[in-house]
Write a protein that binds this DNA or RNA. Structure first.
Lengths: 275, 275
DNA sequence: ACACGCTGTATTGTTTGCTACATAGATTTG
DNA sequence: CAAATCTATGTAGCAAACAATACAGCGTGT
């Protein structure tokens, strides 16, 4: 974790349009719509987002009911058992949302820029607070790495990252984010994983679909009422923290000294880069 | 529900500064800090926000731990049993957040203004969607009323609303919101209540602390696995929907035809106004 | 000495949003 | 007719966030 002088924190545009009661449009829902447009089925779109089919269907249904005209058309039965297509209207809404998002990010950028320019004493205190907060919260499961691969997957980018000669992880992020980060082969970035989305395994022979697997030795187990917090040390000295239920902890026989594998889906890897 | 021509929807500034993992500063937390500054105790501040003491304490604790220097100082014991005070640093952070919030709202206003100016076909479709969504989602437990009273309570405003000659409800909203809505005696506004925060009673003699009590007749009971959805019709013909547990439903003997009272806290009433 | 009103924890329950699983129904193609 | 593959729907269960409640400890004023 290099102690580089970090410049002003950038505000992230995590937009979501909310009504008085409940959320109407969020990034997840828009991504779901986009995937439907590409895949032609709720089922596959749900897998791509990722979401459970149920959640996806519910989201689609409420959106369809809320909107003045349907966003998607659904067909049951048929050659491939049916399918779902974006309507022209739906396509327009998605496009508008994305356009609005870009504008929103631009507005935020102007805002933070202004904050930097003015630079009074109080503002600096505020920035220092935000900075220290973001450092503290992201201090766990943060890996510095170098981009070694970049695959355009239509909407998503698959980013391959080398942490050290022995460890690589991959991250799948939206195209928009990728472009935003200005990713390039060789660029240094930070990868973060929430400890709750890290799973553990001990069986060396087991085949896992998860792309990211890091083997290490358990160096600490912090017991909670329901979940345990397990810290793994990788051969390189890096630490990985996972939060797993006590049950699976005992089932796997995890205790200090155990060899274990921390694995996580590439879609739960968050990337950050500082220019 | 008058079908008035509604002008462009304004984006609401619900700002919250989020780090990669978790929310650091949100409106609720800042309001908590403000209340602490005024009341001098976490306990009373929590009641004012409102929040449970636990939630408030947790929030304060994490903020204090995250920040480079404490935002509050806490004392146990003493004349009034102790207390909590904002530090100078904490006061500065609150002030900065509020200032930033104003800037943020301004940025959003510029954004929505631009959206209105450009006004291409797609943008109008988008606005129509958002409009219809906010209408549809707020269709339940929405009451049109006229402001009959307005009491400045320091940070909060207590708004008295007349629905019809026989029914009045009161709402407590933050000063900021009140000013945003440009409330005045005689102004027509909409009041909304989530059906999950509506409670039921049948005992006519019972004294309730809740300010808002609406008597009516049960016209529908929609049974769910755990909760029932009970719809009351007021004498004026208005409908109120409450979601209550099956247990309390049977305990109160609620079925179609029962006379019942729907009551809710004034802090769970949301107001909306269209200029 | 004692009461007061707060801090600091822990316990339990509720709500919300999701996942995972199960199953019925649709309809075209082979 | 059967197979394939999706939509459409329900149920169970989990995890996070929060509410409600209880209670021990504290120290100043009366």
């Amino acid at each position: 974790m290099p102690a580089r002088p970090m410049t002003a924190t950038r505000f992230l545009a995590r937009m979501s349009l909310e009504t008085e009661v409940g959320t109407a449009l969020s990034d997840t829902r828009i991504r779901l719509l986009e995937e439907i447009g590409r895949k032609g089925s709720i089922n596959q779109a749900a897998k791509a987002v990722p979401l459970s089919y149920k959640a996806a269907w519910d989201a689609i249904d409420t959106m369809n009911n809320l909107a003045p005209e349907p966003l998607v058309v659904r067909v049951t039965g048929g050659r491939q058992g049916g399918g779902t297509q974006l309507t022209e209207y739906g396509r327009r809404i998605v496009a508008m949302y994305r356009a609005l998002e870009i504008e929103y990010q631009a507005a935020l950028d102007r805002l933070s820029e202004r904050l930097n320019d003015v630079g009074g004493g109080d503002i600096q205190a505020f920035q220092k607070l935000m900075h220290s907060m973001s450092m503290k919260t992201s201090a766990r499961n943060q890996f510095a790495g170098i981009v070694t691969g970049l695959r355009d997957g239509g909407v998503d980018y698959e980013v391959r990252l080398r942490l050290d000669p022995r460890h690589e992880i991959t991250s799948v992020i939206t195209k928009a984010s990728a472009e935003n980060l200005n990713l390039q082969i060789g660029k240094e970035v930070f990868a973060m994983v929430k400890s709750s989305s890290v799973m553990l395994a001990v069986d060396k022979g087991m085949k896992l679909t998860a792309r990211n697997q890091l083997w290490g030795e358990v160096v600490a187990v912090h017991e909670g009422p329901v979940n345990n917090e397990v810290t793994l040390q990788l051969p390189s000295g890096r630490n990985v923290t996972a939060v797993v239920t006590q049950d699976s902890c005992t089932a796997l026989g995890i205790e200090v000294g155990t060899e274990a594998c921390a694995f996580f889906k590439s879609s739960s890897v968050i990337l950050a880069a500082y220019d």
